[in-house]
């Protein structure tokens, strides 16, 4: 096994670890906004590592396409994180219907 392949596998494994950590954070963090952090950051980094790991094994054109996909996911992550946070914050500030019990755990 060449060094390139070894690096690729290491990066893939590391990316998967970040994905799992992100999901675990989604389950374990105490409030909704912290969960938002977990999903956006850990998954963006995990996807980046997976993309780099796969790029080492593939044709340069596929690598470019994967990089493009990563950029799209990163941009969407940053923007929708902001949108969801603002929406949820406004909703908490002036809720429409009375909050059901157990809104926060």
């Amino acid at each position: 096994m060449s060094i390139l392949q070894l690096c690729s596998w290491l990066l893939l494994a590391l990316g998967v670890v970040f994905f799992l950590a992100g999901s675990l954070g989604l389950l374990r963090f105490a409030d909704s906004f912290s969960r938002l952090h977990a999903v956006t950051k850990a998954d963006t980094l995990g996807l980046g590592l997976v993309v780099i790991g796969l790029s080492l094994q593939s044709h340069w054109r596929e690598a470019c396409l994967m990089l493009l996909i990563w950029l799209v996911v990163m941009g969407s992550g940053a923007v929708s994180c902001q949108l969801l946070a603002r929406f949820s914050h406004e909703q908490q500030a002036n809720p429409v219907e009375p909050a059901d019990p157990g809104q926060e755990d």
Binding site: V17, A21, G22, G25, R28, F29, A38, K41, G46
Partner: peptide, 19 residues
């Protein structure tokens, strides 16, 4: 980006809950 990912992952894998 790397620091942020590590930070979040570290907190998620930490044994105690933090608030």
């Amino acid at each position: 980006l790397v620091m942020g990912g590590l930070d979040v992952a570290g907190r998620a894998l930490m044994p105690q809950r933090f608030d």
